[in-house]
């Protein structure tokens, strides 16, 4: 998974730098190259770092900017999902590394296939729209606005439904209640706040 993160970061950062070089070789490509280099270094050094979100956002912004120009549009359209994919891979690696030092290959393959499918489909739609020379006319803008509204509702609904940590209390089996009560005294005595007895005078 470490290698996958590095490859994806290199690809997306490379595409962003190449697009920036097409737009403005010195004023735009130089800082883009510098940030890309830092991101690649970070991916090689700490593939699970939380800091990946910063270069990812910069890369996504660069790629979005590249899609405005006709010449660099393809690079931007391919680079943007790759940047998202690279960041997602680093996040997934961080989540899984809590539980296992090495993630099993079939898990990595399944994840890579799912992400490649999503990215491929998205790039296909975007490039198809580019080939068809889609224009942002009033009906398209209206549709996009409705889509935005729907997305906002979906976000609110999903945020309400999901919570970070869900405590699960298992139902007690028959016969365990007595055992629990029996252990309660020992647990109480072992608790840090337990005071064994009050202040008393032996005389």
């Amino acid at each position: 998974m470490r290698l996958a993160v590095l490859v994806l970061v290199t690809l997306s950062a490379g595409l962003a730098v190449a697009g920036a070089a097409l737009v403005a070789p010195w004023t735009f490509a130089l800082p883009a190259g510098l940030i890309a280099g830092l991101w690649i270094t970070l991916a090689a050094w700490r593939p699970s770092s939380r800091l990946h979100v910063i270069p990812m956002l910069l890369c996504v912004g660069t790629c979005a900017f590249l899609t405005v120009g006709v010449e660099s549009r393809i690079l931007g359209l391919v680079g943007l999902p790759l940047a998202l994919f690279a960041w997602d891979a680093s996040f997934t690696r961080r989540t899984m590394s809590r539980f296992a030092k090495v993630v099993q290959p079939h898990v990595v393959l399944r994840y890579a296939a799912a992400m490649a499918g999503i990215c491929g489909a998205a790039v296909g739609v975007a490039v198809g729209g580019n080939i068809l020379q889609l224009r942002l006319t009033f009906p398209v803008a209206l549709g996009a606005s409705i889509g935005l509204l729907g997305l906002t509702i979906a976000v609110l609904w999903a945020a309400r439904r999901s919570s970070a940590v869900v405590p699960v209390v298992l139902e007690k089996k028959e016969g365990e209640e007595g055992k629990e009560e029996g252990d309660a005294a020992a647990e109480r005595e072992a608790s840090p706040s337990y005071q064994p007895r009050g202040f008393s005078n032996p005389h």
């Binding site: 996504v60 979005a64 975007a126």
Partner: peptide, 11 residues
């Protein structure tokens, strides 16, 4: 910008 609109599709 139609290009920007298409860039939103992957995200």
């Amino acid at each position: 910008s139609a290009g920007l609109f298409m860039a939103a599709i992957p995200a």
